[in-house]
């Protein structure tokens, strides 16, 4: 499985994402490459990560400019063809702005940047990214953002819930930002696009205290092998 990790001016977590993709595939630099924001050719790639950071400085609104980038146009097509797309933090915001995921990410309830290790409960979504995770189980990965409050109007929220699109919830008492229904990550209806605010790419090596994030990157290959 070969991953492409988008790189915008202002991205900061693309290197960790690249590393996570490589580790997920058992190591080796051939398993992932950076995709410059002006690139439109995603051929040869089996999965896409839209990483964290501040794409184009997050001017106007987080993710609002990145959605218009040539690479995101290609990613939309890639997703429409069923390709797995993972958006982390700013990547989640970009995917929401692009309409590839439902809802929006607003400024944290306390309006401040937060940074801590926390627990997520795995949801029931039928997503390739969750293939290696059991619904209801807990994973520990870093939370690190200032605009991570998941919001959707009541009808849409109801739809997200009823269609099983909630991929991750903050563990009870750990909602760091005021997200509705403790939602930390959602998928699209088809399940092949996942966005989450916390950072699985920072939790893939034992040295950092948790390797729980790795399973998310390993999911699509597992799902592919099973199907």
């Amino acid at each position: 499985m070969k991953w492409g990790v988008l790189q915008f001016p202002g991205s900061c977590d693309e290197r960790d994402a690249l590393n996570a993709c490589q580790l997920a595939g058992g190591g080796g630099p051939g398993q992932a490459r950076l995709v410059w924001h002006e690139e439109t050719d995603l051929s040869g790639l089996d999965g896409i990560v839209v990483p964290g950071g501040f794409s184009y400085g997050d001017y106007l609104r987080a993710g609002a400019i990145a959605r218009f980038s040539p690479a995101m146009t290609a990613v939309a097509e890639f997703a429409a063809n069923g390709g797995p797309v993972l958006g982390i933090c700013n990547g989640f915001q970009v995917l929401c702005e692009s309409g590839l995921l439902p809802g929006a990410l607003l400024t944290n309830e306390r309006t401040r940047f937060i940074c801590r290790q926390g627990d997520l409960i795995v949801g029931e979504s039928d997503s390739p990214f969750l293939a290696g995770l059991e619904a209801g189980s807990t994973i520990s990965i870093p939370f690190k953002h200032q605009s991570g409050r998941f919001f959707a109007p009541p009808e849409l929220l109801e739809q997200i819930e009823s269609r099983g699109q909630v991929a991750f919830r903050y563990a009870p008492g750990q909602n760091p930002n005021g997200s509705l229904n403790d939602i930390a990550g959602v998928t699209n209806e088809a399940g092949n696009v996942l966005g989450l605010m916390p950072h699985p790419e920072h939790a893939v090596e034992a040295f950092s205290g948790s390797t729980d994030g790795l399973a998310i990157f390993q999911g699509p290959a597992l799902a592919g092998a099973a199907s």
Partner: peptide
Amino acid sequence: GDPFEESK
């Protein structure tokens, strides 16, 4: 300061 500029 403009950290976006510095990031680039």
